[in-house]
Amino acid sequence: MATSNELIRVVDVKKEYNNGKVKALNGCNLTIHQGEVVAIIGASGSGKSTLLRCLNMLETPTSGHIYFDGVDLADKSVDLNLHRRKMGMVFQHFNLFPHKTVMQNITLAPVHLKLKTKAEAQAKGKELLDRIGLADKANEYPNMLSGGQKQRIAIVRALAMEPEVMLFDEPTSALDPEMVNEVLDLMRDLARNGMTMVVVTHEMGFAREVASRVIFMDGGQILEENEPNELFDHPNNPRLKDFLSKVL
C-alpha cells in the first residue's frame, strides 16, 4: 500500500509503570493505513489494550512516537484534543454518559466543540440512530438500554465526530453472549464502508472474517502480524501457536 495512505505509525513505543518495574509495552512498531481493519489479539496482560490506548494518548508512552496524520502525538507541544476528535474510541464498558439522553450523548461533543450546530448534530444523530435501528431510543437514558444497545450507541457517539479511524477496546467483552452479534454486525458494516479500524478483540472468528491484518501481542511486544488466514492457519511464533491452541 502506498505510504501516502499511511494514517498511524507507531515507532518504538514503550510504556512502563512503577519506574520501569512493570513494562506494559516493550518497543512496539506498527503502521496502519487508511481503510485497513487491524485486529490485535493476545492473552490478557499482553499489552494489547495499552497499545490501543497509546494510539489516542489515553496512555502516555514512556518513550517512542505515535504519528497520526504525520503529527507526533507523543510530542508534548501537540494539542491532543484536536487530534482525538479524528480518532473515535469504543470502550469495553461503553462509558455512555448516564446523565445524558442517547441523543445528548451523541451531540455533546460535536456541539460543544462547535463542529456542528445543535440542529445539524441532531440531524446527524438521528441519521446514525436510524442506521442502527435505535431511533426510538433517542430520548431514553442509557440505563434503559441493553448492553448491546449501549455499545452500538457508544459506537454511534464516536461516529458522530466523523473520525478518520475507530479504535475498539474489547468492544464485546462485557456483553451477554446473545448481544455480541448485533455489535459485531455494526462493526462489519463499518469495515465494509471503508472505515479504518483498530480492534482489540477476543473474537477470533470476527478477526479472521473482518480484519485485513491480525497482530499478535505477548509480553508487551508484537510477535507476529499477518493477514488473518495466514496467521490463524500457519502461525510461526511458538507463543502464538500456544495461544491459538487455547482459544480456537
Partner: peptide
Amino acid sequence: VDIGQTEAARSLGLSSWA
C-alpha cells in the same frame, strides 16, 4: 465518578476542563 467517563469525554476531543 468512573474514570471511564473522563476517558470517553477526552477521547471525543473534549478538554480536561470541558
